[in-house]
Structures are given as C-alpha cells and as structure tokens.
Design a protein around this nucleic acid. Sequence first.
DNA 1: GGCGCGCATTGATCTATGTTAAGTCACTGT
DNA 2: ACAGTGACTTAACATAGATCAATGCGCGCC
Lengths: 196, 196
Amino acid sequence: MDKTYLIKQLKELSDRFHLGIPEAAIEKAISFSRFKVYSKGEMIGRSGDNAETAGIVLSGVIRSYYVDKDGSDITQYFAPEGSWCIDSGMVGFDEMQANWEALEDTTVMLFDVKDMKNLILGDEWLKNIWIMSLEGGMRYKIYRENGFLVETATERYIAFRKRNPELAERVPLRYIATYLGITPESLSRIRSAMRE
Amino acid sequence: MDKTYLIKQLKELSDRFHLGIPEAAIEKAISFSRFKVYSKGEMIGRSGDNAETAGIVLSGVIRSYYVDKDGSDITQYFAPEGSWCIDSGMVGFDEMQANWEALEDTTVMLFDVKDMKNLILGDEWLKNIWIMSLEGGMRYKIYRENGFLVETATERYIAFRKRNPELAERVPLRYIATYLGITPESLSRIRSAMRE
DNA sequence: GGCGCGCATTGATCTATGTTAAGTCACTGT
DNA sequence: ACAGTGACTTAACATAGATCAATGCGCGCC
C-alpha cells in the first residue's frame, strides 16, 4: 500500500479531529501496522477472539454487534472513519467483546495493541491524546447509558439522528434499531408514527 | 480533620486497588482538597451544577441518579469507598450529569477538577493510573451497555448481585431496581419468581 | 423487463414491565 | 404500647415493545 498516501490520510484524520498527532508518531505507527481492505459484509473480528490486535478505520464503516441467546444480532456501535475498531484490547480486555463487520468497503489500519500502547505510553503528547480519547469514550457511554435509563425508544431514535445525521443515512435501519435496543419492526412503527 | 489519618486512609485505598500512588502525590492532593462528612440522605451535588469540583469517596456509599420527566428518580451508579464521585468534570463535562446523594454517612475528599488534573497530568506515574482508571471505566460501561442490549432484567439482577455482592446487601432494593432499568415493583416480582 | 431477494413496513397477537393501589412488616420516636 | 413512616411486596390492569406472519418494494441480475 502507498505509504505517502497513508500518511496523508492519517494526518487528515488527525486534523479533522484536532488531535495534533506528531508526524513522527504517525510514521512510527505505520511502521508496525498492516493495512487491510475489507469488502462490504466481511468480518474484521469475532467475539471471543484474542484481543491483542486492534485497529483504526481509515475509510468506510464498521459495525460491532453482539449475538444474543436466540441468535439474533444486536448492534453495539458504529465505527466510521477515524474511529477505533476491534479495540477491546485497547481498554484492557483479553478477548474481543463483540463481532465486527464491514458495512461498506472499508480500509482498516491494524496493529498489535502492545505496539500501539508502547507508542502511546512512551510519548507524552500521545498519552494526552489517549486520555482525551478515553474521556470522550466515557462521555459517550454515559450519554448512552442515560438513554437506556431515562429515555423511550422514540427519544433515543430522535437523539441518534440528531447526533449522527450522517450515519443515520448511511447504515441500514435494522442496525439502527438494535443499536437503540429495539427490533426493526418497532423502529418502523416509531418512524411511521413520527411521520404524522 | 486529622491529616495523618487521611494520609493513612488514602494509602489504604491506594493499596487496596493496587494503584501504587506515591505518598508525595497523596500529600499534594490532600493539600488542595477539602474533606467533608455527609450524613445519610444529604446531597453532594446536583445535575446541572458546575462540574469544576469532583471528589473521591473515602467511606460510605454515594448514589448518583437521574430524574426523569415524570419526576421519578433513576439510579445511575453506586459509588462506595475508593470511587470517584461528582466526577463529570473529570471526564470533560462542564455540568454535573446526575444528582449525587449519600446513602450512608459518608466522607468525601473534594477538590477542584483543575487542581487534580494538573496533579495527574504533571506526573507520569499518576497519568498512567488515570489511564488505567479510565480504561476500567470503559470496561465497566461496556459491560453495562451489553446488559441493556442483550440481557433481561432478571439476568441483569443476577449479574449485579454476582458482581457486587457487598453492595447488593448494603443499598435499598428500590435503588438497585432503577439501576437495572426497572421499577421496584418489577424487581420485587423478579425476586419472588427467583425464590421458586 | 421480469425475477429473486433483502429490507422495510404493516397487522395481529403476546409478554415483560409499568402503573396504580393497597397490604404487610420493621423500625422510630413519643 | 402505639401511631407514624419507610421499605418491600402483591395484585389488577395498562402499555411499550416483541414476536410472528404477511405484504410491499426497490434493486441488482440474468
């Protein structure tokens, strides 16, 4: 894969999210990473897999999902460009917690958690960025927890569209439904009720 | 308040959770902190309050809760000894996200988020501990999110008791109910069904 | 240009949980 | 001892959302 192009793409992501990642760090990360293109529908990782590998989405969207006891799948998270993916190991899990599937043709930067953690923890600036990323993750999970505790499904749907206007267009409704903790049928009814 | 005693108590917490916090850092933290005893039922903070103050529970238990549109309160979290509390500011919120109430007579160490963040971010070791704490927070929130997505209320209750045997005895059932996302009546039914 | 196939929708029915209300029991203060 | 209060339970009924089944519909494919 073209290294100059990758550096450019990573720098763009860094800029887009105002991360200010030093170019040297980007090159270092590239040096221990593999880059892989997944086509729509392909699996990036599975629940229970060893979590020593993690990744960052460079283009496309990945969905993570659980499979419940009846075998139906339930969306946990959507990871568009710039997001971490198959990242259980990054927060200290030994095993992948969910399944990860490409919803579009997707390019992913893959690396050993160990290498990425060494890079991050060995650099003051990156460590601060990692802290910001974790704090942002906590804010997001608190927001989501609040939704399950105090909001109705309809409110969660409205909030989701407001917060992710782009994703709401980009991913199939049935995945949004299970992400909101309801069935596709229920979401369909909510949408039809909203039309009036 | 007796400083030697506080240092001892904080060191015990540090040991209990294998944090290895340097004694100098503990003394520094104490120097910019206030210590306050809340009696059972007292409020430590309210949703919407400025989040520039945060705290750590030294003894007792605090409960954080939301108030929904009908005015009923819904438990978000239980913070026993060693936990952060009124900590929205620590993860970057401007405003307190929830209400915080002492469930027992409780001693809390209170400080400015700014001071604590300066201390943490200025010390390599503390920064690593903060990262560990955030990663642990993410694992906890992922576990909880998974519960809402794939488990029934009964399963969440069983898991809660398994994970927090001590808290399950220590806090009123009605708070456990809303923490699980159900009403006290529903929990009562679940418990009665489990008795058979 | 029709055919097959996901996906979304709709309808009928079912179920877990919410709501309202009342009952029991333990504890508290007088 | 007793009234008052708070915590949990129980019961009857209501409802959001699930489940099951059928239909519609857009789109790629031959």
